[in-house]
Design a protein around this nucleic acid. Structure first.
Lengths: 295, 295
DNA sequence: ACAGTTCTTTGACTAAAGTCAAAGAGCATG
DNA sequence: CATGCTCTTTGACTTTAGTCAAAGAACTGT
C-alpha cells in the first residue's frame, strides 16, 4: 500500500542518518538533560506530557511506558506535590492526572530553561540565518511527519472510520452555507475501500473508494485532520486510493467537490484531474473531476 | 564577542524547540534504541565512537563519561572480543582502543540496521520529497553547526593558534605555485588579536588582526579547517575581526589575498570590501581589499 | 447477572547508568 | 630527582529505568 518508487537512494539515507547522529548528539541530549535539571528524565517527560491533564492510559501509550512503572512515577510526582490524580468521572477505572499550581510552575521553569537553550544557540546566527534555520527545520519536520504516516484500509463501519467521517461531516457542516448532515455521507455498504491514515496510532485522515460501474471508481470523503494539514497527506491519500482503484481493475477515477473547497479543487487539478460535466446525485457537489488511471 | 543582533525572535525559538521535541521523540529514540539491539545503549555508542581507534581520554571527553564507567565499559567490550586495548606508544599513561575484526562486523551490522531504519522512513516519501528532506536536513545541520561554533581571542603563540597557523601554512604551500613557508607567517609579536574558532572544543578556524597605522587594521591568516568549510564560518570570523577592529578604534580594515584563492576574494567582495591598489610587502598577495568600518 | 476485558496498583526483581574516592603508574618540569 | 599533574583502574555505592506477574476494582456485552 506504499505509493512510492521502490529503491531509496543511498545519498538520501546517508543524509538523514548523518543528520540524525549529529542532532541527537548535539541538541537532543543537551536539551533533555538540562531542562529537567535535578529531576530524572522520565519524570520530566511525564510532567510535560501531563501538561493540562491526561489519563494515565493516554500517558502510557503516548510515552510507551509499562503500566506499573508509570503508576509509580505518577505517585512520586504526586508525593512531590506537582501532580494531582483523580478518578475519571465517567469511567472509574481510569485515573486522570493534572498538574497542581506547583507542577505548572515547575513546567514553566523547564520551558524557560529550554527556551534559553534554544535562544543561546540561535544567538550565534545572524537574523537571516535564523530565518533559514526555522524554515529548514519546519520542512524537515513536515516531511518526517508525512513519512511516518501510514494508510491502511479499515472496515467502513469501524470506530476509526466512524470517527473520521463524523469529524469530516462536522467540518463540512461548518463550511457549507447549506450545512451538511451525517445522513449525507455515503452509507458503509456502498463503500468498497475505506482508507484511514494513522500518525502515531491516531487516525488523521481518510478517503473512501466506491465502485461506480465496472470501469470507473469514485473517490469520496477525502479528509485530513486539521492537526495533519500542510504535510501533503491529502495528495498521498488520493494517490493511494488511485493505486487501489487501479489494482481493483478500474480504468478511471472520478470525484466531485463543493464550490467552497478551493484547496480541494486545486489538489485535484495538480494531481492530474480534469473537470468534467456533472454526474451522480450529490447535492453538495459543485465541481466534477476525472482522471484516467495508467494501466 | 558575538557578531550578532541582540534579541532572538520568539518565533525562531519556538520553531527550533518544536522541532527538537518532535525529532528526539520520533527519531532519536527509535534509532538509538534499535540499532544496538541486545547491546546496552552506552556500549553501542562507545563501539561507534571507537570506530577506527581512539584513546580512552578522547572517548571520555567526546562522550562525556566518568573515567571509571568508561574503563569498565571498554573492559566489557574487550571481554566480548569486540575491542582491543593497547598502550599508547608515546605516553604510556594513555590507552588506545581499537575494534577487532569482530567489533568491526558488529559495527557494520549496527550501520546496516540504522540504514534500514532510515530507508524504511524514506520509503514513505516520493523521490521529490526525499530530495527536499535531504536538502532541508543538510541546511539545518550546517546552521546548527555554525551556531555552535564560538570564536575566542587567544594568544598568537598559544598551542591552538600555532596548530591553526601550521595547517594554514601547509595548505597554502600546497595551493600556491610558489609554495608557502612557515617563515612567511606574520610573527606573533606583530599580531594584535588572534581569533580562534572552536567547534566542540576543537580549533576549526582562525584569523589575525594586525595594527597597520592608527586608522587602519589589517586582517591576516583568515583560515577555516576543511572539516568546517561550507558553514559560513569564514564570513563569521571576518565579521568578528571587523567588530574587534572597530572596538579598538580603527576606522578601516584592509587585507590582501593570493590570486589562487578565488573563494577568498569572493567572500571579501560580498562582505563589502572593494579592491584597492597594492600595499605592504606580502610577496604572495595578488589582490588588495579595503572596507570602511561603521562608527 | 456473569464472563471476559480493561485499567491500575503492588510486589519483587534485574539491568543499565552513573558517581565518588582512593590509589597506582607515568609524565613533565623546575 | 622530587613534586605535582594526568590518566586509568578498582571498589563500593546510588539512582534510573524497566520488566513481569498477580490481583482487585470497574466496565461491557450478552
Amino acid at each position: 500500500m506504499e505509493p512510492v518508487p521502490a529503491s531509496v537512494s543511498a545519498a538520501h539515507v546517508t543524509a538523514l542518518r548523518r543528520f540524525n547522529r549529529y542532532f541527537t548528539r548535539r541538541i537532543g541530549v543537551l536539551d533533555d538533560h538540562y531542562l529537567g535539571q535535578d529531576r530524572p528524565l522520565g519524570e520530566a517527560r511525564l510532567l510535560y506530557e501531563i501538561g493540562s491533564g491526561a489519563s494515565l492510559r493516554e500517558l502510557r501509550t503516548r510515552l510507551g511506558l509499562d503500566a506499573g512503572y508509570l503508576s509509580r512515577m505518577v505517585r512520586a510526582l504526586e508525593g512531590q506535590g506537582l501532580v494531582r490524580v483523580t478518578v475519571h468521572p465517567a469511567d472509574s477505572r481510569l485515573r486522570l492526572a493534572e498538574l497542581t499550581p506547583a507542577g505548572r510552575d515547575e513546567l514553566a521553569e523547564q520551558n524557560r530553561r529550554a527556551d534559553g537553550l534554544a535562544e543561546g544557540l540561535l544567538r550565534g546566527l545572524t537574523e537571516a540565518q535564523r530565518g533559514r534555520l526555522a524554515e529548514a527545520v519546519a520542512v524537515t519536520e513536515r516531511l518526517l511527519r508525512l513519512a511516518a504516516v501510514t494508510a491502511r484500509p479499515v472496515g467502513p463501519a469501524s470506530p476509526d472510520a466512524r470517527a473520521c467521517l463524523a469529524a469530516y461531516a462536522a467540518e463540512l457542516d461548518g463550511r457549507f452555507p447549506e450545512g451538511y448532515a451525517v445522513s449525507d455521507l455515503v452509507p458503509p455498504e456502498r463503500i468498497a475501500v475505506f482508507l484511514v491514515a494513522y500518525e502515531e496510532e491516531r487516525a488523521v485522515g481518510c478517503g473512501a473508494l466506491c465502485a461506480s460501474g465496472a470501469d470507473t471508481a469514485e473517490v469520496r470523503h477525502l479528509w485530513v485532520h486539521p492537526r495533519a494539514r500542510g504535510l501533503g497527506l491529502g495528495r498521498r491519500l488520493l494517490t493511494e486510493l488511485e493505486h487501489t482503484a487501479a489494482a481493483r481493475g478500474h480504468r478511471t477515477v472520478r470525484l466531485d467537490t463543493h464550490v467552497a473547497l478551493k484547496e480541494a479543487a486545486a489538489l485535484y487539478r495538480t494531481s492530474g484531474y480534469t473537470e468534467i460535466p456533472p454526474y451522480g446525485d450529490n447535492p453538495h457537489a459543485g465541481h466534477w473531476f476525472e482522471k484516467p488511471l495508467p494501466d
